[in-house]
Simulated scan of single mutants.
Amino acid sequence: MLVRMTTNADEPQTRPRRRTPAGAAVLREDVTEAIRAAVFEELAAVGYARMSIEGIARRAGVGKTAVYRRWRSKLHLVLDVVSAIAVMGLPTPDTGSLEGDLCLLYEVTSRALRHPVASQIIPDLQAEAARNPEIAEAMQKTLREGQEGVASKIIVAAAQRGEISGHLDEDLALDLISGPLYWRSVVIRSPKLPKGYLAALARATAEALKAL
């Protein structure tokens, strides 16, 4: 007689296998990543308010139970995905000069912010953040630990090279670095940056930091 056993939380097996150690069920990482990718796509397609666990599961090609094994609700799922962005962060430029580091940072950030999916998701989550303190906290964490975490390293490196003061107001410096591009790309959503804009922004920001 065929004995049917389940050794994986997401995929039933038809042959008996060695017993899994007691504790939490083993969750397949490829299924988890498929669900996370589906969240981004679903957010871009319908927005947070209309997003549902059913829609996410359907887009990921899994059952609803696979989603609920990992997250209690769509809020917890979105908070996890948003927080994961902060952990990933951006690469820290190392060009040898403040202006060069800023220019590279702006190029990478601009591409990320202007990505079709990101450009739809970020404004929608910002609107939800105004109504949901948990999303607001996660968004703030994402922005500060992502863009501003890299910007802090640029400031430290520039101070070590003697390009800027080692005693400048770091919060003001971070505002100068992160504010203009975010305003242009996310708030007013300029359809296209003028030619040479990022290089000019890097040059102006570097001079402003040196004057602090």
Rank of each mutant, 00 (worst) to 15 (best):
P116K: 10
P93L: 02
V81D: 10
I85E: 13
P91K: 09
L104F: 01
V87R: 15
V82F: 05
G89H: 09
L125F: 00
S119V: 04
G96F: 02
D94L: 12
T95Y: 02
I85T: 11
A84W: 06
A84C: 00
Q120D: 07
V87Q: 15
P91M: 03
V108W: 07
R111N: 13
V87F: 10
V82Q: 03
T109L: 14
Y106E: 03
A112Q: 07
A118K: 07
P93W: 06
S83C: 10
G89Q: 09
L105H: 05
L98C: 04
C103S: 11
R111V: 11
D124Y: 01
P123K: 10
D124C: 02
M88G: 15
P91W: 03
V117P: 03
T92S: 12
D94T: 06
V108S: 00
T109D: 08
Q120G: 05
G96R: 00
G96V: 08
D80Q: 12
V81K: 07
Q120Y: 00
G96P: 02
T109I: 10
V108K: 07
P116S: 13
S110N: 12
V117T: 15
R111C: 08
I85A: 14
L125E: 05
L105C: 05
M88E: 13
D101A: 02
L105T: 00
S110D: 12
A112F: 01
T92C: 11
E107S: 12
D124F: 00
S97P: 05
E107C: 06
L90N: 14
L98D: 06
V81M: 14
S110P: 01
S110L: 08
L90H: 14
S83N: 02
T95S: 13
T92M: 06
D94E: 14
A112E: 06
T109K: 06
D101M: 03
I85N: 12
L113A: 10
E99Y: 01
T95K: 08
S110R: 03
R111G: 07
R114G: 08
G100L: 04
I121S: 14
G100H: 02
I122K: 11
I121P: 11
L98G: 01
V117W: 00
L104V: 03
L105I: 04
P116T: 10
V82P: 13
G89D: 08
S97D: 05
P116M: 06
R111L: 14
D124A: 06
T92V: 15
L98T: 06
L113D: 09
T95C: 07
P123R: 04
L98H: 04
L113Q: 12
G96N: 09
V108C: 08
Y106C: 03
S119Q: 12
S119C: 03
T109H: 00
G96Q: 05
R111I: 02
P91C: 00
I121A: 12
D124L: 07
V87S: 14
V108N: 05
